[in-house]
Design a protein around this nucleic acid. Structure first.
Length: 422
RNA sequence: GCGAGGGUAGUUCAGUGGCAGAACGCGCGCCUGUGGAGCGCGAUGUCGCGGGUUCGAAUCCCGUCCCUCGCCCCA
């Protein structure tokens, strides 16, 4: 019988993959809670209308998993968290004590073609600060991201957070006569600038409705890497980032705009410096979102980071952690001739003292049992075979040093305690 | 939705008309109760699936399914 195919774009988490996911979850929890953020989560299923509100046409119409439930309502597997967050905030309304610092790590789905760093089912870290409209709040979020990077060993020469501001960009564009209907086209154009050859980019601009003057103005605007200094908002942002000690990770980049429609102010994206430059994390300020889902207007700022690209970046930089899969502290060997009950008893005794203990679940040659312990990186093995049982003794082998000692069975627990304490 | 490359052992892949292979992994032995390193031996396959051409097909042709990469979009 052939193996039934998994659903396209889903991922299997074998123990080694699960170990990484759990490690990442722990790192994210650590960085988030260092800044006082509280963990929350939304449902995995939402009504489609929730996303229709503001997520952007592409994400809703092309990339959501949508299906009717038994009552005929159109349901989406959540493609992002921010609309659920906005809904949750709007529902509680004035019952909430602002500001809110909330974070989450969970699964999301997008119906798109699988490729490197992109699957249809992925995990995402979301973190938001709701109820504050200052650039200092934006800077804090960036600092949380930088803290995670630092904690896992991603330095500023491996990864950068590129920052821009939509209000600043709109003001700059207005000066060179780009406004109204040309604005979304320009945002799309800016977004593609680093992915296209200069000539192709120019033809694309002219085809999109730019005239030569506007294009020349745009090129000139992009060359001005000090433009942020004309924006009080950006000045505050960068000053705060410096005070938070994370400015080494930050660059002003006038081409960063972000695709989602709900961003209003500061926007940013983290990218790896040498690799494929795929976006690792993206976010910014959204001051109208809560009102869009029907609540009173509350400002917010936050970002999302996917697990897949993050893992790839760690790997490419040679800093993906080598994680142990087995939780076991001690393996108890098992031999025939009535030895099984002795093994099980010893396992229970050591487990009762608070250690993680497994017994080899069937009689087998010692060679095989030691190999099993070796492959699973189990640090201690208790050998209890016919020789030991007859003499009322046990042997304890340290798998790291290779040293082994035989002693009275009543000494076993203290010896294990001593070994595992070191 | 568009474009490119693939599918052969558990894994990564070589084989482009004539006996289905290598490396790693796995098993066994050297070592009768001692893992990792070394050496030796060994097992493992619907060559994605269906059809066609041929004396003969993993190899050529047609169809089909699946995977990967890129574009689009985005975490």
């Amino acid at each position: 019988m052939p193996i039934i195919q998994p659903v396209r774009g889903t991922r299997d988490f074998y123990p080694e993959d699960m170990a990484f996911r759990q490690w990442l979850n722990n790192q994210i929890r650590e960085a988030s809670t260092q800044f006082g953020y509280q963990e929350f989560d939304g449902p995995f299923l939402e009504r489609l209308e929730l996303y229709a509100a503001k997520s952007g046409d592409e994400l809703v119409k092309e990339q959501s998993y949508v299906f009717p439930d038994r009552s005929g309502s159109m349901i989406a597997l959540r493609p992002e968290l921010t609309p659920s967050l906005a809904r949750m905030v709007a529902q509680r309304g004035k019952g909430l004590t602002l500001p809110l610092r909330w974070w989450s790590f969970g699964p999301f789905w997008r119906y798109e073609r699988k490729q490197k760093g992109r699957s249809r089912e992925f995990f995402q870290w979301n973190i938001d600060l709701i109820g504050v409209d200052t650039p200092e709040a934006d800077a804090e979020l960036v600092a949380v991201a930088a803290t995670l990077f630092r904690n896992v060993g991603l330095t500023a020469d491996m990864i950068r957070i590129k920052v821009n501001n939509r209000r600043l960009a709109e003001k700059q564009l207005e000066k060179i006569g780009i406004l109204g209907e040309l604005l979304p086209i320009t945002f799309r154009l800016l977004d593609r600038q680093d992915r296209m050859a200069p000539d192709a980019w120019k033809s694309y601009a002219l085809e999109s409705g730019f005239n030569e003057n506007q294009f020349a103005g745009l090129v000139k605007m992009l060359e001005d890497l000090d433009a942020w200094k004309s924006s009080p908002e950006m000045l505050h942002f960068f000053n705060t980032a410096k005070a938070l000690g994370v400015d080494e990770y930050l660059d002003y980049d006038p081409t960063i705009i972000r695709g989602l429609d709900y961003y209003t102010g500061t926007v940013y994206e983290a990218r790896d410096v040498k690799g494929n430059h795929r976006s690792i994390l993206g976010g910014g300020r959204y001051d109208d979102l809560v009102s869009v889902v029907g609540g009173n207007p509350i400002p917010g700022t936050g970002f999302a980071m996917g697990d897949v690209v993050f893992g790839l970046v760690l790997e490419e930089n040679g800093i993906k952690p080598d994680l142990r899969v087995s939780p076991t502290d001690v393996l108890i060997t098992t031999f025939e001739e009535g030895g099984e009950s002795a093994s099980i008893q010893i396992a229970a005794e050591i487990r009762g003292a608070g250690y993680r203990v497994e017994w080899y679940p069937q009689p087998a040659r010692l060679q095989r049992q030691l190999k099993y312990a070796d492959r699973n990186e189990i640090p201690l093995v208790v050998i209890i075979g016919p020789d030991e049982i007859e003499a009322d003794k046990v042997s304890l082998k340290d798998m790291v040093s290779g040293e082994q000692e035989t002693f009275s069975r009543s000494d076993l627990l203290p010896r294990i305690k001593k070994q595992l304490a070191g």
